[in-house]
């Protein structure tokens, strides 16, 4: 059965993130509510994804290397996009990612007070990426770069849980049609199944968030439709988990979200017993 390979330190998998750093990311996000720029939204999205991934792999003795991580930025240039000590690194074990954020901010988080209310709690928020907005959107080149990295990984780890590539963008490629390049990625496979390509579309459109749709009908623009077509269908085991989490998904749901985050995907990765009550 596909997508059932164990994810462990002996049989790790790979996650590659593609980050749109083009000039258009200076535009407001979600029609400018809260004055947030798309570049801020992208930085928040990737920092949050990595934070959740690191926490997932953390145990009392440290971080277990269940995953190796690549982050490719694309804008004025295409290449590794970690800031700080990991700068220039193409593929980094998750333990090194967790131990080497560029900086750690203090943020407020609402937590249950045990009596039905919420209270502010100070938490540490690691930052690996600063918002960047500069140049065109060479998405095709970035997808090609991801293909090279994932191909190299698969040569060395043929039995791994299939690598996942997550592309975070405002959708408008400036170096040609990205669809063929996305198909090249989705054709790659380990002995456990095809590589998964998911897309996060952060737009300036004042349109409602969409999560894991099964059809492009109703998506707000041609870029959203294009990214939908580039996205892999969620494997059926992910659909089952998402349903149990109360998400509105079904057969044919794709790994695509519009003006929403994709942190739920981290929950879909099975590294061992996960309590049903854990959020």
């Amino acid at each position: 059965m596909a997508y059932s390979a164990e994810i462990s330190r002996g049989n790790p998998s790979c996650l590659a993130f593609l980050i749109d750093q083009s000039g258009s990311m200076n535009d407001p996000f979600g029609a400018g509510e809260g004055n947030q720029k798309k570049a801020d939204g992208v930085a928040d999205a990737i920092n949050r994804l990595l934070q959740n991934l690191v926490i997932k792999c953390a145990k009392e003795e440290g971080i277990r290397d269940y995953f190796h991580i690549s982050v490719i930025g694309y804008g004025a240039r295409v290449g590794p996009a970690f800031a700080g000590a990991l700068s220039g690194r193409q593929l980094v074990p998750i333990s090194e990612v967790g131990n080497s954020p560029a900086r750690v901010e203090q943020r407020n988080k609402k937590v249950p007070d045990g009596a039905g209310g919420l209270v502010d709690q100070q938490v540490r928020f690691p930052v690996w990426f600063e918002p960047i907005a500069n140049g065109g959107t060479p998405m095709r080149q970035a997808l090609g770069e991801a293909k090279t990295i994932v191909e190299g990984w698969l040569n060395q780890h043929p039995n791994c849980f299939p690598p996942i590539v997550i592309n975070i963008t405002d959708g408008e490629s400036t170096d040609g049609d990205p669809l063929p390049a996305s198909e090249e990625i989705r054709k790659l496979k380990s002995n456990d199944g095809e590589v998964l390509l998911f897309n996060v579309h952060l737009s300036s459109q004042r349109a409602a968030a969409v999560e894991y749709p099964a059809s492009e009908t109703g998506l707000p623009d041609q870029f959203a439709q294009q990214l939908f077509r580039m996205s892999s269908a969620l494997p059926s085991y992910m659909v089952d988990i998402a349903k149990k989490e109360g998400m509105n998904v079904g057969e044919g749901s794709r790994g695509f979200v519009f003006n929403a985050d994709m942190v739920a995907v981290i929950k879909f990765l099975d590294i061992g017993t996960r309590p049903s009550a854990l959020r």
Binding site: Q51, I55, A58, R279
Partner: peptide, 20 residues
């Protein structure tokens, strides 16, 4: 048993979810 130690950010966050 588990608190009162100086922990890195991820261990602190993880601890906040409790053990099961």
């Amino acid at each position: 048993i588990v608190h009162g130690k100086s922990l890195p950010w991820y261990a602190e966050e993880k601890l906040a979810s409790g053990a099961y």
